[in-house]
Design a protein around this nucleic acid. Structure first.
Lengths: 206, 206, 206, 206
DNA sequence: AATGAATGAGCGTTCATTCAT
DNA sequence: AATGAATGAACGCTCATTCAT
């Protein structure tokens, strides 16, 4: 019965992970005690520790999942070789991000911010976030490159620098939304469109 | 001799605050114990509690100072009624930010990220950050407004939306620098300049 | 097929006991967890508990076996009615003891010392060790008695007291070997021989 | 007020150590929980941890004290250059040992046996016991050497071997007393005297 | 005003044991 | 008979905070 057992283990792991997710989305990394997670999971302490070595591993797994969600958002975005408008990409990406953020289990962006705070101090969380940030930045650099190839970006523009700015818009959106609220994907994308389409003396924005 | 006493109190408060700042910049909000702060301050536990009600108040004061620094960065920026290029503003602002971040007492952006994480969960940290974010956003909106008034932004662009994007670039810069490193003010500003100065060559988007 | 079942049960019991023995010889009574024993035995938790009521019973069984080995060492030693030299008996006994101690499954003297520690506090381990110590002491008293009967011990010597001393030499050997190493049966027996054969030269003690 | 504070600290340390001593003498190393020690000490958990890093350090300190007591027993024993009868030394030593063992705080020999069990597995307890055993063995070797110099031991006897035997008599006494009871210093010493004064065919013991 | 020893609730974790399968 | 996932009481320990001096 290995199939059943493996499925069972995976389901239990998921159950715990979701419970921890809910706790962290509600109370942050440090406000979430193992006792909370255990109670939320409906399991016993021993059971939880059978699936995760300890609190650190659990938080790590949650952070992993949280930032993986940001990455997901790019899938299919760059399929083909089209040169989408960066503002359109941003809108799509943030739109998906907001859909995911409305998860009834809890807002993953809140967890992501916790993870940034942890990663800032170095250690395993930094090791986790670094490659994922790099990958997402790579996506944005690719967007910039294509945009440049399509003749929409100055020939002397450096896609790496443009990519940094585009990547930067994402944490900017997330933090702003969490702290101020009232930020939505279309408006934010429009702000970028306006910046990207400056009036040529008496020009018109998009 | 109330003057002396008041000065004394202020000096002591500052001494504690700086000690806590160093701790938090090194170990984060939760990694910093009161014992660490007390040791770092060179005072006794009782003395520290004589100036701050508890850890929360101390962290709050640190967060306050940390984000105040971001605000500082705008001072004199918008004096007069010039209409500076947003990318120039960004470069100046980030340049100052990096100077402040190199404080030997510890990187204030690290503390800021901790504060965002805390604020995301609501509570006093949100109440602290919200008005400060609002004010900084106000600065950016003003930048956008003047840019528009100078005819450099489409007439139908909404400065509020543009301001959100410009504000967003700051946390984006901070997080990216902490996680990936290798981000500097001029290059980041150049990325924005490139986006804002699209090729005038006719091009078609995807 | 009760025979087969009984044999099977005995084999399983032995399998568990040996696994526990290995664990205890490696990590002591308290350092050995049931999880270790279970893993070492290759059986499941449930299976182990099917053969032993709990950890206490298992440790008890191990202690039993460990001190039984010390007793073994006397078998045939006192067969017949010879009056062997106590030092010779000691040498033979310790020699056998060391052979047993080199069991690849682990040093039984290490387990014995654990058992002494437990027995010192009273309880079942004391009830276990007491009769076994008594029996071994009985052997030594018998050695002393025969030695006296052979005219090698003063007529007014009390074999019970001599037996206590001879018994005492055994834990002394075991502990000394575990803590200091470098103790071997022949040298230790020689030490006793030297004490038992004082110089006949006239001398005065201090 | 450093004097007072230092004395205070020393007194508190002693208070905790004695509480732990009582617990260990009653329940052994592993049966003694920190909660027990804390309750017994009359202090709080935090206070205890202010004086001892953790349970290990506390047990180590107790073991240290326990075996130090065995060493004490030799003080003044070998002052001067007399050549005392080993059996007399043994009697004195064991007599002192029993006096110390009757400490109302708990029998130190019980603690010593716990320490032997721990040391047998290597680690810090072995490092602690090894030099102390060596020193005590050194005392016994000196006793043997003097006895030999006084012409009471065969010229070809090796004091090192005799010393091992004499040292061995001590754990033998301790364990036997704990497990069987009914062992006292004079009787035990008499047993040794009897062994050391064999009848010369029809001789008389001392 | 300042000290720092003391507090104790609550933390993360372990592990002997059980029981549905 | 055998499994091993699950249990949960109890463990060692931390740390924000207090208060007698």
């Amino acid at each position: 019965m290995p199939r059943v057992t493996d499925e069972h283990r995976a389901a239990r792991r998921e159950q715990i992970l979701r419970a921890a997710w809910r706790c962290v989305a509600r109370e942050g990394f440090h406000g979430s005690t193992m006792a909370h997670v255990i109670a939320e999971s409906g399991l016993s302490a021993g059971a939880v520790y059978g699936y995760f070595k300890g609190k650190d591993e659990l938080l790590y797994a949650i952070a992993e999942r949280s930032i993986a969600r940001i990455d997901e958002v790019f899938h299919e975005m760059l399929a083909g070789d089209a040169a989408p408008d960066p503002a359109d990409v941003l809108e799509t990406v943030l739109d998906r991000l907001m859909t995911l953020a409305e998860d009834p289990d809890g807002d993953f962006t809140l967890i992501a911010v916790q993870a940034w705070g942890e990663a800032a101090r170095g250690g395993p969380f930094l090791d986790l976030l670094e490659p994922q940030f790099k990958e997402i930045r790579g996506h944005w650099i690719e967007v910039a490159r294509r945009w440049q190839a399509a003749g929409r970006l100055g020939a002397d523009a450096e896609p790496e620098q443009v990519g940094r700015v585009l990547l930067g818009l994402m944490p900017g959106f997330i933090v702003q939304r969490l702290v101020l609220g009232g930020v939505a994907a279309p408006g934010y994308a429009n702000g970028l469109r306006a910046l990207m389409s400056p009036s040529t003396r008496a020009g018109a924005a998009g």
